[in-house]
């Protein structure tokens, strides 16, 4: 299983050029308490058909990092630096008219809470068909509505034809998320970003939504960026994973390898805090302490106040993200030892 994943990742990497390249992404906010840095030097790329998982606790900068890509952050207060290339267009620096046409069409996003992300005053049919009306000018109302029905079928909403004229409040949370997904895949995007698409849902519905996303990725060959704080979900679906903490990347690499042999104490902490079948009778260990607040970022390694392996230099020198194996990086002074252990 693990070997097959690695082989597939390698195969994808060879055939296709990256569809999205994020280089040295920086996001800071001007707040009443001063300037805070929420995302600091995040870089990654994703190829067609690939799934990249972004993993991290609450507040680690996952949403902000993709919000910058999707143009969701208001400046002020946000100050955004770095580059995000979709093919040859820098989404952070190209004219808004150009990036607007890419967002929603070539790169689209599914939000954590579909119920609040849908417009309560417009029918779901209007909201889905609007994707065609906006990005494919000339599509007739009727055509767009028919396509909306087809999409609702595709995301498995029962009796789509009748429900296309319903308002969002007439749908459950899971069904609302399906509608969000329908909008996001309407124009067959090259990249789909799913920001914790299941956290607001019941456990059984969560599995269905993940299943749907995986199926759609396989059918369409789009690249999927999956944000979650559930390492189990990442392990099941992502080819590669990026672990974030305090706005920085702690570790990245092929999921199977990272899960099998983590190269960062924080990753180990995350894995230990997941309930697993074989440790039914053990007490669930969580990482002690709380994630850092942006206004009081620890010196040196941001994880040091909570790290079991910390040494004196950890609070002094900030470890940079370094290659630890082929395709793997870790930001820990003792990455080699952690990996070897």
């Amino acid at each position: 299983m693990a070997m097959a994943d690695i082989a597939r990742t390698a195969a994808v990497a060879e055939v296709a050029a990256p569809v999205l390249r994020v280089t040295d992404l920086q996001v800071a906010f001007q707040t009443p308490h001063g300037r805070v840095s929420a995302v600091n030097g995040v870089s990654y790329e994703i190829r067609p058909g690939e799934t990249v998982g972004i993993l991290g606790e609450s507040g680690s900068g996952k949403s902000v990092s993709v919000g910058a890509i999707m143009g969701l952050l208001d400046s002020p207060p946000a100050e955004i630096g770095g580059h995000v290339y979709f093919r040859d267009t820098d989404l952070l620096n190209a004219p808004p008219a150009e990036t607007r046409r890419i967002r929603g069409d070539r790169v689209s996003m599914v939000f954590q809470d579909a119920v609040t992300a849908l417009n309560p005053g417009l029918t779901v049919g209007y909201q889905i068909s609007e994707m065609y009306r906006v990005h494919r000018p000339g599509t007739s109302k009727r055509d767009a509505l028919n396509k909306a029905v087809a999409l609702m079928d595709q995301v498995k909403i029962p009796s789509a034809r009748q429900r296309v004229r319903s308002y969002p409040y007439e749908f459950s949370g899971g069904m609302s998320q399906r509608i969000m997904i329908a909008m996001a895949i309407a124009l067959a995007p090259d990249v789909l970003i799913a920001d914790e698409p299941t956290t607001a849902l019941d456990v059984t519905v969560q599995a269905q939504i993940m299943q749907l996303l995986t199926e759609l990725r396989e059918q369409t060959g789009m690249a999927l960026i999956l944000i979650t704080h559930d390492i189990g979900v990442v392990a099941e679906t992502a080819d590669r994973v990026m672990v974030m903490y305090g706005g920085r990347v702690m570790e990245s690499g092929p999921t199977a390898e990272v899960v099998a042999r983590p190269a960062h104490p924080y990753t180990i902490g995350l894995m230990n805090s997941v309930p697993r079948a074989e440790m039914k009778h053990e007490k669930l260990r969580t990482i002690e302490g709380a994630p850092p607040v942006l206004t009081a970022m620890p010196s040196g390694c941001p994880f040091h106040p909570r790290c079991a392996k910390r040494q004196p230099e950890c609070s002094r020198d900030r470890p940079s993200l370094q290659s630890v194996a082929l395709g793997r990086e870790s930001a820990c002074h003792f990455a080699a030892e952690v990996l070897g252990a």
Binding site: N119, G121, V134
Partner: peptide, 24 residues
Amino acid sequence: PYITAARGRGIPLRKIASVHALKN
């Protein structure tokens, strides 16, 4: 949040204001 989401779908600001926000 539904306005943020609409922005993420590339809907022009004019339409976001005059249709999405105004309706509510």
